[in-house]
Design a protein around this nucleic acid. Structure first.
Lengths: 197, 197, 197, 197
DNA sequence: TGTTAAACGAGACGGTACGTCCTGTCTTCTA
DNA sequence: TAGAAGACAGGACGTACCGTCTCGTTTAACA
């Protein structure tokens, strides 16, 4: 077949070094000064790269940042202590840990900021960060079902979504009468109440 | 008493007309072209007002928009059909209605966009838009408790928050396998399941 | 007769104190920071006076400054040593003295700056500063004529004008090969050469 | 040799077209509306050029105008009729001609206005406009000396300066009892009196 | 081993918006 | 009715980025 093998285009190939410099600079700026501080001009200057070189790769700030995020390695640990609550506890703790550092905070803020205006952006975040966690959560609930800690009819994904939703919500409108974590725990209890734990 | 009567400050008082022109122009731009299209320059030009006049009142775009939002009249209807589900249905419908028009959409997007970077912003939105609805929701649940449709121990505010949270969440990460409303309904059912409806 | 006596206008009379404050502040600013630094705003602020109060008196920056200049007391000394050259020497020295201090320098610069665009301005300067000196110079030359130091047909005013002219000229285009005063002296010699000194 | 050949700097070179547009617009504004009407904003708008493009070249209005003046072509005609007075007559006439048009008037006014505050400005004017005329004048006097119309000891440059000076002076303080040209002629006669014409 | 064609860094281009300053006018309260 | 205080519409200032463009210079695959 003709295009089975991607033929090398003529001319000088894209510089891998420039790729790296651009992405790393983008992530660095994101962590240090936030999304608003990212501009093609700033990235180019700091990465020691021409503006054209960036425009050739990305046609908007969002594309650039999305790609930078995609390049970050993520590892999800899947706790398995044999007890539903302890597993969940560990999961939340791990999520919390990756959100409290400077980069994580900026990242969440960024997602919230641009989810509405740049859906593609949220898509990347979903695939890369949320979905794996949703699946991990589901696995944990399946194990709990097998141990008959909770009812078999409960929808793990939905519980995860509700939990994520209220975390998001609490981020925008922080609870005033109790701590953030107490609030989330209360929500979790409500969610699992009917499930005969 | 000394400061019982607020004394007029010296000098020409702020122009009420300018106040109005600024706020209305801001809201108009928000509805028409979105938050990003709002600039002091644009508002000044369209409102027929000097830039200085705006800067005298607001020191940032966010302050300006926050004040504009605060100036919008909001009315919450409190349905009372005698049936929990029908009441909730009506409430959701009304919320949905005020979100589907151009201005509402821009507004929600804006809140989500800036909640993290400008907490004050979210505060205004909470006081003006969310809290009244939370209270309305609580009233409806109280009535349902009185009719023994649901258990007396359920926390209306928390349910409202969880519901709002998942709506927000679904806005950022739209469900792929089912419709938005079906998804929300499923969540609501899960929430009220343990409550002996 | 009706208007023989300037009738007091109704209402509050103009404040003498404000008059003074305005003029002095104007002169101070002129000496300190130059003509360009003078603005109605700046004068008002520093004089502790409303902008309106200044606008009521002067309709342009030039009027204001012209009036301020007019308020400065000037004294011309008329040297009479019995020798033409010594008299001229003293006159030049005195003129030079009143030009070398900060205020004098600013003043001359100002006149040069605005002579073309604001003739009225130069008029004030002429009446107040130049004419008296021209007359003093003429008197000195008349005395020299009486002593037969110079010919009777020489036009003192014209010589003064030529001398002033070249001083002005030398101010704009400073001589490069000799000192300012040597240059002026050379000119003076040329001017009086034909006059049998 | 190393720097014999000026190496091209990296990056896109300055646009010659923009250079021209800026200078011509500056001269046009100067001729039409005077120095005060020149603003970076106005020049940019009318020249169809970004403000930045002008700021990249000039850091002040004065620099800009100085360069614009420097770009104007000037030709000095050197009359040679064989008679001193007729030559001078022609020279003055030519100088007068180039000063009576709109541009010339603005130009002289400008020089006078800013000579004191922006010496560099006067420098350009001197090199470009005055010096050539001073030299032409000297040549004419030299010829007159050769013809023995005037004494050999007369300093042409100084006479020129005195003449220029009184013209300048008469511009600032116009003669009240006689015409401008009669006044200048009288001065010229005084200057050349001792020279046995 | 050259040729060639695209990518590269650098930086200028026409623009838009920023936030500050000043202008000349106006509107209020106080004296 | 003058005065101080200060708000008003307007407009220029000088700066920062935008997204596009034009340079001279690599850099590798193809001829």
């Amino acid at each position: 077949m003709s295009n089975e093998q991607a033929k090398n285009p003529p001319g000088r190939p894209r510089s891998e070094k420039a790729d790296q410099a651009i992405l790393q600079t983008t992530l660095a700026l994101l962590a240090e000064a936030g999304y608003a501080a990212i501009s093609f001009e700033a990235v180019a200057a700091r990465a020691g790269v021409g503006k054209t070189t960036i425009y050739r790769r990305y046609s908007s700030k969002e594309e650039l940042v999305a790609d930078a995020l995609e390049s970050v390695r993520q590892e999800i640990s899947l706790p398995d202590t044999g007890h539903l609550w302890r597993d969940i506890e560990l999961l939340i703790e791990s999520a919390s840990a990756s959100t409290t550092n400077s980069f994580g905070r900026q990242l969440v803020a960024l997602i919230v900021s641009t989810a509405s205006t740049h859906p593609h952006f949220a898509q990347v975040y979903w695939n890369k960060y949320m979905q794996p966690r949703q699946q991990a959560f589901s696995v944990i609930l399946e194990r709990a079902k097998a141990r008959q800690e909770i009812g078999a009819d409960i929808d793990g994904a939905l519980v995860f979504d509700l939990l994520s939703g209220i975390m998001l919500y609490a981020l925008m409108f922080p609870p005033t009468t109790e701590s953030w974590s107490a609030y989330v725990r209360r929500a979790l209890e409500l969610l699992l109440r009917g499930s005969g734990r």
